[in-house]
Design a protein around this nucleic acid. Structure first.
Lengths: 210, 210, 210, 210
DNA sequence: TATGAATGAGGTTTCATTCAT
DNA sequence: CATGAATGAAACCTCATTCAT
């Protein structure tokens, strides 16, 4: 009754991990571009394949199905920014404002041009239909960020109004989300500058920089 | 000269505007529910029809195609909150903080339960693929709101750090967008309270209420 | 999260069962022909559709998938001969030989030309891959036949060698199966005559007719 | 004149017939298992390769295509039992019944466990779609058997009713075919015992053994 | 006006086969 | 000889849309 199964391979050469990695990367690039441009549903496997310069069937050699490809692409995407975030050491005696600026502003300078904004938009757009992915993104990106914000803000005791940021660390991320959404939907040709807006947010909350 | 237009005809009766409106409403409700739950692509016309208690063909008597239906649904949606916004008169001598609280907090109290959060999520999710719609939404909802915010914030002169809100009135909307996105994607079971978060935002920027 | 569901249909006309039955019959004929000619795997839905003069999609309006269509076709097939079998009354005092002859020979006269042989071959060919179907066929056709044979053979007591048929009523069916298989595979142009072979079988077991 | 054919060459070594035969056998075993379990269409080359512990491409070094592999497998299969059949000498003065019993019963004792039943089922199942194969099987297995039966039955002159077996020697094979088909399709867990059924058949035709 | 049967282009996926290494 | 990555034709199935009644 069973028609298939895994059997050990005896003689013969081993697969070439280099080439496999190369092809996966090819697919990854093509898929990323298409997913970012069209989202999950409107992206057709045929387009990904042809953009990658491969045949349709080849995609299925590396990914079980469209969903697996999508999840792989997004995992690659979210696993990268985390590294930078974790690595940054927090200087002693740094003010909350200075810390947030140091943490966020460089990342926001090339937010659109680096493609990070598009990635964030993709996660916002498809996240609710891929809860597993959203969960990964939350664990790898959102929560570490929230914890960092929390630490920075709590460090600065006494400032009564800033307790708000401690209760809702999401407020710090709000300008970033807003910038991503705004530039994706409502901005016509005049895109918002995420970094400038974030600094304005810091000004609004903490007053002008010293 | 034909004069029978004023009298009800026996056979070949005229379209009954009442009934037509009734049917459109039926479709509208059904479509809204499905679009909110599944987004544009995953919503099938057959489901909308079935939920509306109608046949598939009937939908096409009232809407040219799926896109037209979607656009109609969203237009209905965005044209409503505007009315309230425009109608509210601004009390003289009101502080920026008080004004923003008066304007936003009531709307945010039932943000999720009223379905407005879901609508905002839908616009965020599908907006980039329906630029015409996003444009309408911008004109009817976003821009008036931005103008209101602008007026309120500019009224209060002198507060140096608050010029930020004048340069980026989107900052005021950021907590709302963040709440909608957060609750749609990253919040597990512990949803954010949009109103509470907005008040915290006001606290962070303006200090605690008088 | 749920994107579909069953909702009651309100106003409007009822579906026309006549037309539906007509179309199902069209599909049934086309599918039967193709399945008999090619078996399950080699039959393509596109061929069934075009033979039925319908579009591919129409098939799926009436049958969930290829397997459902196949099962429907075979159920139609096996439910028919049963009726005749059940209806035949057993004359009192009839000999086993006479009874078996009366029961089987008419059915075998047009075994090939009636298509019953082809049907049997189809069941033999695909049965092992559609156990549910084989089970139905067993219940509706094989077992009643076995019971009839059993009754006929047991009626005639004393004949020592015929106890064999009682222990293995399948032996009575064996010539039929053999004829079907033989004509399907090994007979070149000289097909076996199933009725003649069955009579020869009766002769071999019971001796020449009285 | 080149004379190096008699010596082993250093580089570019000649094909090693031993190894080739070894590999073909590997493939043959794997393919047989899969074809018996799944039939022709449902057997995938990838599975055969994997079961053989080889790469897919290797199969094509030894067999032109899937059909050639299938035909090879079945040829191997049918060419074996013939040997035994031909080799058996017919004792002088043996009764038809004794001869048939001697010829068939040992072969039927381990009919299922030896895999011969499965092979027969495979031929029955796929034969009509591989006429060339069925033809080979007919020539190598069926016809010799029919001739043997014929000789045995004709040897015993006078028994009027047994002329039937002479006219339709297939009747002798019918219980075997029936057993194979029955056990493949209609038998649930209670498999028929082919040898017992064949003996019952002989009892029914020839009366109990002397 | 409303119906529901019919359509068919378009999408995903499978798998026998090829070929450079 | 053997490999395994790559191919692409072909199959199944979906669903927005049309139309005779």
């Amino acid at each position: 009754m069973k028609c298939d199964g895994m059997f050990p391979r005896g003689r013969g050469r081993l697969p070439d991990p280099e080439r496999t990695a190369q092809t996966r990367k090819l697919i990854w690039h093509a898929a990323l571009a298409n997913f970012l441009a069209c989202g999950f549903e409107r992206t057709r496997m045929a387009d990904v394949a042809s953009r990658a310069g491969l045949a349709k069937g080849t995609l299925y050699l590396h990914f079980a199905d469209k969903e697996a490809l999508f999840e792989f692409v997004l995992q690659q995407l979210v696993s990268e920014p985390l590294a930078r975030l974790q690595a940054a050491p927090v200087p002693a005696g740094e003010s909350a404002r200075a810390g947030l600026e140091r943490l966020f502003v460089p990342m926001l300078r090339d937010f659109e041009s680096s493609g990070r904004a598009a990635v964030l938009r993709l996660i916002i757009t498809e996240g609710s239909r891929f809860p597993a992915l959203a969960e990964i993104h939350r664990r790898l990106v959102i929560e570490p960020m929230m914890r960092l914000v929390d630490r920075m803000v709590q460090a600065e005791a006494g400032a009564v109004e800033r307790l708000a940021l401690s209760r809702f660390p999401q407020l710090v991320g709000a300008p970033v989300i807003m910038a991503a959404v705004w530039n994706g939907i409502w901005a016509g040709d005049e895109k918002l500058d995420p970094a400038a807006m974030f600094v304005a947010f810091l000004d609004a909350v903490f007053g002008p920089p010293a």
